[in-house]
């Protein structure tokens, strides 16, 4: 019996040594050279694997950045800080990028539903219904079943009654909701351009009035009012050009339907852009 125990200990010890040696040799001869910068960048990235950069996960993006296939500023959740750190590791310059957050281009269903919907409680399913564009009064607007809230990897979208509400502090601008929404109602809004046309409906006049209390009726008042000529009518709905917009707020006042609104609190603007733009916004109110 004693012999057996000695054998057992010897065999296990021997196995351990042999396998250890095998692994050590393998680590040497089977090693694949990986750019250490890839590891480093992967460590910096938020590792939410949201895919907003267009690469499969944070690891994929790190590899692409090191290979020069992607820009250091492409990680939206990481924002400025991460892009600066990445640029520092790669030894290249990066231009300042303004933080973007997702915003819903719809005020939500304001009129009564056209019929009761009993299908899957998912916007993608409800959107498939060919019955003249779904059960809400507007066939272009938010269905309000919360597909975006489920898709958001950061828990930044919460459903309040029928409309998704974006938590600006939690939103990283990764763009997952932009792709999740079957009606493509989300857009990434620059945080220093908080004026948003909350409608995408191409309906005009009477039709628009019938489908929604607050939707754009293509009256062109904002287009005429804007001193910076930043507003144009595309597909019969007002669109603000963020490059030209000065955040003066005149369109918000002019819009007779309340479609154009400030979507972010003003204090945020002050922090994001500094005194100049805040002054302009203040004048507008």
């Amino acid at each position: 019996m004693q012999e057996a125990i000695i054998y057992a200990a010897a065999i296990l010890g021997l196995l351990g040594v042999v396998f250890g040696a095998a692994l050590a040799l393998a680590a040497k001869y089977l090693a694949v050279w990986r750019d250490p910068r890839v590891e480093e960048i992967t460590g910096i990235l938020p590792n939410a694997n949201c895919g907003g950069c267009g690469f499969p996960g944070c690891g994929g993006y790190a590899e692409a950045v090191v290979a020069g296939k992607a820009k250091p500023g492409a990680c939206a959740p990481g924002g400025c800080e991460v892009s600066k750190k990445i640029a520092a590791i790669l030894g290249i310059e990066v231009e300042e990028s303004v933080r973007k957050v997702a915003m819903l281009r719809c005020v939500g269903p304001t009129k009564e539903d056209r019929f009761q919907y009993y299908g899957l409680m998912d916007c993608r399913a409800a959107n498939l219904m060919a019955l003249q564009g779904g059960f809400r009064s507007c066939m272009y607007g938010c269905l309000g079943l919360g597909t975006c809230a489920q898709a958001c990897p950061f828990g930044a979208i919460v459903m309040s009654d029928k409309v998704p509400v974006v938590d600006v502090d939690k939103c990283t601008g990764c763009g997952t909701c932009v792709h999740a929404c079957p009606r493509r109602l989300f857009s990434l809004q620059r945080i220093d351009r908080p004026v948003l046309v909350r409608c995408v409906s191409p309906l005009k006049g009477k039709e628009a009035l019938e489908s929604c209390e607050r939707g754009c009726i293509t009256c062109r008042k904002c287009e005429r009012t804007c001193p910076a000529k930043a507003i144009s009518i595309v597909n019969d709905v007002a669109v603000i050009d963020p490059e030209k917009c000065t955040v003066c707020g005149k369109c918000v006042e002019a819009c007779p339907r309340g479609t154009i609104v400030f979507v972010l609190p003003r204090k945020e603007d002050a922090a994001a852009v500094g005194a100049g733009a805040t002054g302009a916004a203040e004048e507008g109110r």
Binding site: L12, A22, L23, A26, A27, A31, V32
Partner: peptide
């Protein structure tokens, strides 16, 4: 001993595959 063998084997295979 089997857990030792399996763990080593999987590691080796992973390296060889890569």
């Amino acid at each position: 001993s089997f857990i030792l063998v399996i763990a080593t084997l999987v590691q080796l295979v992973e390296m060889a595959l890569r």
